[in-house]
Design a protein around this nucleic acid. Structure first.
Lengths: 342, 342
DNA sequence: TTGAAAGCGCTAACAA
DNA sequence: TTGTTAGCGCTTTCAA
């Protein structure tokens, strides 16, 4: 910058003013500085600006895995709003691992970000809670249920799974496998709750063996489905209780040579090309991740403006998209034969 | 940091030495400083460190769309190596848009990153070439063909499509649609070249109407496929000449109620859950994105160490994974009937 | 081994 | 409107 100032024959202060678009610079000076910037190829040092200005104008976001398409659309929507508001977005995947999550929180503190949208790998872990509470920027917690003065935005998974189970029960299914994640995080708890609520509403008992909480990922979906399908008394329907479990569930079904929906009905935990293009097309629980991402961004920006208003909390309800992956069960609960829907 | 030094009753210099793990600090001082850091919850300001040290220890990476799973595994592999080497990774999607790409390059310059892995939306655009050459850190160009002193890592798409076409020709196909991106970037050119080479090897003529270069994305795949299938003289096989075109191609086929592979054979441009789980499973061109990502990272790290060795160039060959989406054509070229494979 | 002090690149307060 | 200068938080040289 000194070189720019020298080249333009102005003081370094004037150069700075031009760079920052200050209004009180004479046109002649401005053009000279601009010319110097161009010929020297000067680009301001962001780190130095941050140090001096005392703020980073960066937002952080931690998702489990940015690879998951629905999460990517969530992030994308948020990013658009942040950029518009003049904030950059630092996007990281935690892989649902505590150590990585802690490391990311540490890095974000080093970076002096001004706000964070995050999930967490465990709602009850005290190290994580501690680390979050030590942050001196606002945190918006996404799809988790934690103590602390955070804004919270959730998907109402209880409602979603409730819809799915109610639908399956209406088709005559009684042995419905719900494969979801560990109960130390909200989405799993909520799904289980929705599952039980739907059974209770029909005064039916839940078979605890059919509520599996081993994990959210595709590999677990595969394992859980494979194990369940091998049992003598196998389920007649499966609900993938996670955003990217469907591939694993379908692979396991494929491996057993069972036919969807004749032998087994399936409901996916999120929409995807796979769900749409599978044969038959898979019914799914769907919600608008773009809208949710935008809402999170908006709430966090408002929080940054007004630090000490009351924490807010918001839930979005999923919608059951019925396609062709669920058939009616004709024979009673412990059935051997089933018939096709339609 | 002043507070830490004060609290520990040492000079700010000693505090800095402890933070940076300098060896020449007496144990007693070290523990005092560490204690102070803990009680005060001090985390060093990364921006200030960067300013003072004069280096960022950050690498940038620009991909078209991080959402694409194979690209995500590419990035992930690279990230692991960079982190191990002490570098952070700034990951950005260009959306294949020139303006966004230029903006990202500008931001990376502001950030003083020390190396960049990038693709580009156009190999011939002079603004982009100019912007790249103005960078004062090494650039590794991924899957593109550009002038300039960059290391280049490519996928040998010509070989891949050549394998695919040769395979289809051997099944009796003559009207093979290749839907790929614009010819101003290497992956499209290479695919077209591989296509022509395979036809030439059999002394067959290429119908230029079957080589489509409208775009890489799923939406274009849909449109191109839909249009082609509506023509009287429709193709008997389709090659998706892009990494994430398969969903669009399959959707279009689905919409026409044609049957794969009986009515139309399909080869996907990259592997995916969709390709594996579609009914029938889709044959694809596959390459090891994890290995390629790691290789890119390694090359860039070496380049950072040794700035002025000769630029290097590397190509990885795809493999044709044969599944169930291609059938043999029984009747001669302008056929009306086809028969199933197997 | 330690503390004092200079200075990284920049912004902003101040005086002119 | 401009130039001068202090200083953001940190590292690193230098002298002790």
């Amino acid at each position: 910058m000194r070189d720019v100032a020298k080249q333009a024959n102005v003081s370094i202060g004037t150069a700075s003013r031009v760079i920052n678009g200050a209004p009180n610079v004479e046109a002649a000076y401005r053009t000279r500085v601009l010319a110097a910037i161009k010929t020297l190829g000067f680009v301001p040092n962001r780190a130095a600006q941050e140090v001096r200005k005392g703020r980073s104008r960066e937002i952080g976001i931690i998702v489990r895995d940015i690879t998951t398409p629905v999460l990517a659309s969530f992030v994308r929507a948020a990013q658009d709003l942040f950029e518009e508001a003049g904030y950059g977005l630092l996007i990281c995947s935690s892989d649902n691992r505590k150590d990585r999550e802690l490391e990311l929180l540490r890095r974000f503190r080093q970076r002096r970000i001004e706000g964070l949208i995050t999930t967490t790998s465990s709602e009850v872990d005290t190290d994580l809670a501690q680390a979050r509470n030590d942050l001196d920027f606002p945190v918006l917690m996404f799809d988790r249920e934690v103590d602390g003065a955070h804004d919270i935005v959730q998907v109402d998974h209880a409602s979603g799974v409730n819809q799915a189970v109610t639908y399956l029960l209406s088709l005559g299914h009684r042995r419905i496998l719900l494969s979801t994640g560990p109960l130390n995080i909200y989405p799993a708890r909520a799904r289980v709750e929705g599952y039980k609520r739907a059974f209770a509403a029909q005064r039916l008992d839940v078979d605890p063996a059919l509520v599996r909480t081993a994990g959210f990922d595709a590999a677990t979906g595969f394992r859980e489905t494979a194990v369940a399908l091998e049992r003598a008394n196998r389920p007649s329907a499966i609900i993938a209780g996670g955003i990217d479990m469907l591939p694993g569930v379908l692979k396991a079904i494929r491996a057993t040579h069972l036919h969807v929906p004749r032998d087994i009905s399936v409901i996916g935990g999120a929409d995807s090309d796979l769900a749409l293009l599978a044969e038959p097309a898979i019914s799914v629980l769907r919600w608008n991740f773009t809208e949710i991402g935008a809402t999170c961004a908006r709430m966090l920006l408002e929080r940054i403006e007004a630090a000490d208003t009351e924490p807010r909390r918001l839930a979005f309800a999923p919608e059951l998209v019925v396609r062709d992956s669920c058939a009616a069960v004709v024979i009673a609960p412990a059935q051997k034969r089933e018939s096709r829907q339609k």
